[in-house]
Amino acid sequence: MKKLLGYLLTPIFYLTFGLFLAIFHPIQWICYKLFGYAAHKRSVDVLNFFLTYSQLTLLNGISFKNGHQLPTDRPIIFVANHQSMYDIPSLIWFLRKHHPKFISKIELTKGIPSISFNLKYGGGANIDRKDSKQSIGEIIKLGRRMNEKNWSTVIFAEGTRAKDGKMKPFQVGGIATLLKIVPNALLVPVAIENSWRVVRNGTYPLNALLPLKWTVLAPIERGDKSAEELVLQAENAIKKQIGK
Rank of each mutant, 00 (worst) to 15 (best):
M1N: 05
K2M: 14
K2S: 14
K3M: 12
L9S: 04
T10L: 05
F13P: 05
G18N: 12
G18V: 08
H25G: 04
P26Y: 02
F35D: 00
G36E: 04
Y37A: 08
H40M: 14
T57G: 04
T57V: 09
L58D: 00
L59V: 03
S63D: 10
G67S: 07
L70P: 00
T72V: 12
D73Q: 07
D73E: 09
I76R: 02
I76M: 03
F78Q: 06
V79N: 01
V79I: 15
A80R: 11
N81H: 09
S84C: 08
S84T: 14
Y86D: 02
D87Q: 13
L91D: 00
W93E: 00
P100A: 05
P100L: 08
I103C: 08
S104A: 15
K105Y: 05
P113W: 00
I115T: 08
K120Y: 09
Y121V: 15
Y121R: 15
Y121M: 13
G122Y: 05
G122A: 05
G124Y: 13
I127E: 02
D131T: 12
E138M: 15
I140E: 06
K141W: 07
K141G: 00
R144D: 02
R144P: 00
E148R: 15
S152L: 02
T153A: 15
V154W: 04
V154N: 02
F156V: 01
E158F: 10
E158T: 11
M167R: 12
G174R: 10
A176H: 09
A176L: 08
T177A: 07
L178A: 09
A185T: 01
E193A: 14
V198W: 07
R200V: 14
G202L: 12
T203S: 12
T203W: 14
Y204I: 08
W214P: 01
W214H: 13
W214G: 03
T215L: 06
V216N: 07
V216W: 09
L217I: 01
I220M: 06
R222H: 10
D224C: 10
K225C: 10
K225Y: 07
S226L: 10
E228D: 09
E228Y: 09
E229R: 11
E229P: 00
N236C: 07
K239S: 02
